[in-house]
Amino acid sequence: MSSASTATASPASAPASALADVTASDAALRRYLHGLPGVDAVGLEARAATLGTRSIKTTAKAYAIDLAISMIDLTTLEGADTPGKVRSLCAKGANPDPSDRTTPQVAAICVYSDMAATAKKALSAGGGSGINVASVATAFPSGRAALSVKLADTREAVAAGADEIDMVIDRGAFLAGDYGKVFEEIQAVKDACRRPGGGEPAHLKVIFENGELSTYDNIRRASWLAMLAGADFIKTSTGKVAVNATLPNTLLMLEAVRDFRAATGTQIGVKPAGGIRTAKDAIRYLVVVNETAGPDWLSPDWFRFGASSLLNDLLMQRQKLKTGRYSGPDYVTVD
């Protein structure tokens, strides 16, 4: 737990001191996670649906679109990824709309660990040195590999220059009730995020794959488990299964980070990923962030979108706001 550093001003050991006894043993951890209040599923979905109806227009919309662009982890996670494709994605992230230089850059480029070095190089060469490289690791997306393999995967990515590591939890162990194993695995990966030669350790995002956790109660437990184990970000999903980020489960995770900060003083970020394709969707998420966790989270440091096609829709909406004319897919890149 001593390595649970985040970008907040709070001391790194804050979670440990506030909730130290919770993580003292497997039994205590289990007792704590099962003692979390149950989720009111109907209320949660109704709340998310209500927030989803907010109307964001004109200047507020322009602000929201720019904020959403700056929060994107522009992602390509496919078997067919080539260095060329990663480079063009980096170029797009650094300069999303070549016809309008006032467009903000994205927050990060998210790739498989073997592409991290390519991405890092492309970004520093292409005017995107402010953009992070996020690498998925730990046998993404299934997470089914030996711990040693997962740690080696993580170290390779960190060594290749990844600024952020997106790890997946072992859903099998979680669903079997083996919380201690998941907890220790997150801690071990967190440890592997440190750079051998010193320097800022890579930020750790922990992916739950909500679609496989089946219940809202499980998502709440996974959120607390990951935060206790030292995650810097908690992330909804890999984007590789049928159910990815939804408004209700993101709302639930935002409640968790809000409560965690209230309890420990440590701020944790949230990243919904998968299935967010339109500017309208993105703005709904931003409304939920503001109304649930609060404006402190309305920054790329604390909230991210894992997305690929979302950026194009945001750019088209941005052009529409600017010119008054509806734009089309001919005016953004094909990727």
Binding site: G324, R325, Y326, S327, P329
Partner: peptide, 9 residues
């Protein structure tokens, strides 16, 4: 008016 200005028409 919207259709005439639409960039994807």
């Amino acid at each position: 008016a919207t259709l005439a200005a639409h960039q994807d028409v």
